[in-house]
């Protein structure tokens, strides 16, 4: 397969096609718009530009129930609008993929600059308890590879899967071979129009409403968690680089920022989660080898709580705010403290 110079967002679109995408609905938003631009030119993908992100996610839910592999793509503001229906998709067990190309917030923020401010929103943005699977690659090839993984995970878990990106890697051009050898998980649930099933956001057991049955609710939530963990098990993605020199420090970062962390691979051991949620268990085995654990994020501290929760120990946190990833600046911060 020939090499291609591809933008991150183009890689997402090509991978989605390779993973069997048949329906896309979206609303224009910087820095995710290139994805819908790519989709409208693809023959076998029905693409709709909806009136807003709420309509987009709901059209995707409808299309997925009607039997098509479906996805939407947006950025932080649109992702916030989608939250209620993401909860609905979890409750109705609808497989779909949501790409969130993060930009600086809150609110309109700095639309063209990258950030990592939507990490917590991925798991706690909708009301109630639900258990999404979230991937966050850091290169154009990885966007390709993990978009396919996201589609497979969605089918395996019968739930929405979130692919995080950011304004930096989605707008990055890299030469890649747009191909990844893996099995594509086919649709498993019969499409709408084949029976008398009732899909509902109310607590339920199969097609029967159980709006005040406490035990049934507890079982339902437990089954969601179990499904997520079974699926996540098959998608155990992370990167761990041991330092060539003796070091007592593990530096954790992810997404665009982790590309800057590679500059410091001769001084620190590096760890990068790719499957953000549920967090990869391996960190529990890696962390005890290091006295100091430091973490960089392009927010004021979101994933650091997850790492601290897992390790039961303090993690030094370095915020890199405002969308500027400057290795010199990062170096200064890292070596001064």
């Amino acid at each position: 397969m020939p090499k291609k110079l591809l933008q991150g967002n183009e890689a997402i679109a090509q991978a989605a096609e390779a993973a069997g995408l048949q329906f896309f609905a979206g609303y224009p938003i910087t820095p995710a718009s290139e994805i819908i631009h790519e989709m409208v030119n693809k023959k076998h993908i029905k693409t709709m530009q909806m009136e807003d992100e709420i309509a987009s996610i709901n059209a995707v839910i409808g299309a997925s129930l009607a039997g098509l592999k479906a996805m939407t793509a947006t950025s932080g503001p649109g992702f916030s609008l989608m939250q209620e229906s993401i909860g609905l998709a979890h409750m109705m067990e609808v497989p779909l993929v949501i790409v969130n190309v993060q930009r600086v917030g809150p609110s309109t923020g700095m639309p063209t600059l990258p950030a990592q401010g939507d990490v917590i929103q991925c798991i706690h943005g909708s009301h109630g308890d639900y258990f999404p699977i979230v991937f966050y690659p850091n290169s154009v090839f990885e966007l390709f590879r993990y978009t396919i993984a996201a589609f497979n995970a969605a089918e395996e878990s019968m739930s929405p899967v979130i692919l995080l990106s950011d304004g930096y890697i989605s707008h990055l051009y890299e030469t890649i071979v747009p191909h990844y050898d893996c099995t594509i998980t086919p649709r498993s649930r019969p499409a709408l129009g084949m029976g008398n099933r009732h899909f509902t956001g109310l607590s339920h057991k199969g097609s029967v409403l159980k709006t005040s049955d406490v035990n049934n609710y507890r079982q339902l939530i437990a089954s969601f968690r179990e499904k997520q963990q079974m699926t996540a098990h098959r998608h155990n993605y992370f990167e761990y680089l041991e330092c060539s020199r003796e070091t007592d420090t593990l530096l954790i970062s992810y997404g665009a920022l982790s590309r800057a962390a590679y500059y410091f691979k001769n001084d620190f051991a590096l760890y990068r989660p790719i499957r953000m949620f549920p967090a990869v268990e391996e960190i529990r085995k890696i962390a005890p080898r290091y006295k100091r654990i430091r973490m960089m994020e392009m927010n004021t501290g979101q994933y650091v709580y997850e790492i601290e929760r897992m390790l039961h120990r303090e993690v030094e946190f370095i915020p890199i705010l405002g969308g500027r990833i400057d290795p010199k600046e990062i170096k200064q911060t890292l070596y001064e403290q």
């Binding site: 309509a55 987009s56 409808g62 229906s85 709408l192 129009g193 009732h198 956001g201």
Partner: peptide, 28 residues
């Protein structure tokens, strides 16, 4: 109402029945 039809039915979020229905119609 949707749950009382002996058909495949979807009970969506508040206000979102139309976009879900449109997604279904465009899909099939």
């Amino acid at each position: 109402s949707a749950g009382f039809f002996d058909l495949d039915s979807v009970h969506t979020a508040h206000g979102r029945a139309i976009p879900v229905a449109e997604g279904i119609k465009y899909a099939n």
